[in-house]
Design a protein around this nucleic acid. Structure first.
Lengths: 112, 112
DNA sequence: AAATCGTTCAACCAAGTGGTTGACAATATC
DNA sequence: GATATTGTCAACCACTTGGTTGAACGATTT
């Protein structure tokens, strides 16, 4: 497969554990253990999730003694949001059409 | 796993073939065959991708004779975009900090 | 030096994904 | 009625994913 950046970003976001970890990081930097603790899950499991986030560029880590401190990097989220905003017109256009339809009906004919 | 709506939406978006199909649908309704045709891929393969999009609520289909006409439903994209916009401050805050840092340096000391 | 803490790694497992092929069903056309 | 068109379904394959356990490893504490 092609594996572009949107692929890995969206795939990283498609898991509630990882979205939870991001939310946790939004409140401040955390170690791997702290990140995994709210989800009852082995240490190694949490470590894997963090690795997914890291390889998606959503998390950067630095060593602090024997701990690994993770912090959030929101830039890929921005890219994903940019891509999604492309579609904005498709949900507003739909609403516009609906409004137009409703208005037409209220003025002309009672039912189809 | 928990399988909430964001999960399935993001997972549906995490594949370039499916994002391509959505882009194709943005230009107008299409049959399964028309959707699959740009990606050299078996009919059944395309059908599977469409099914993923459909179960994510991104595509709705109606039968027209022997063809299945698909059309775009952007609403789940809106939900995903809403979720991502939550994080907006995290990329703007970064910029703010950077600007503050640059300004401080330009006024006080030449280098660190 | 020994024990403990925070973490990674390798191996494994069950389930899911992306793709194929081949058989089948329904509609349209000759 | 025969044939082509537009799909679906089931079975299969290789690979990935999300999770586990247990061993190991580097840093810290005792």
């Amino acid at each position: 497969m092609v594996e572009n950046r949107l692929d890995v970003t969206f795939r990283a976001l498609a898991d509630p554990t990882r979205r939870g970890m991001l939310a946790s990081l939004a409140l401040g930097d955390k170690s791997i253990g702290e990140l995994g603790e709210p989800f009852q899950m082995s240490f190694a499991g949490a470590s894997k999730h963090v690795k997914v986030l890291e390889s998606a560029g959503l998390v950067v880590r630095r060593k602090a003694g024997r701990r690994q401190i993770c912090s959030l990097n929101a830039e890929p989220l921005k890219e994903a949001e940019d891509w999604l905003r492309q579609w904005e017109k498709f949900w507003s256009v739909r609403l516009d059409r609906l409004e137009a339809l409703v208005e037409r009906h209220s003025k002309e004919k009672p039912a189809v």
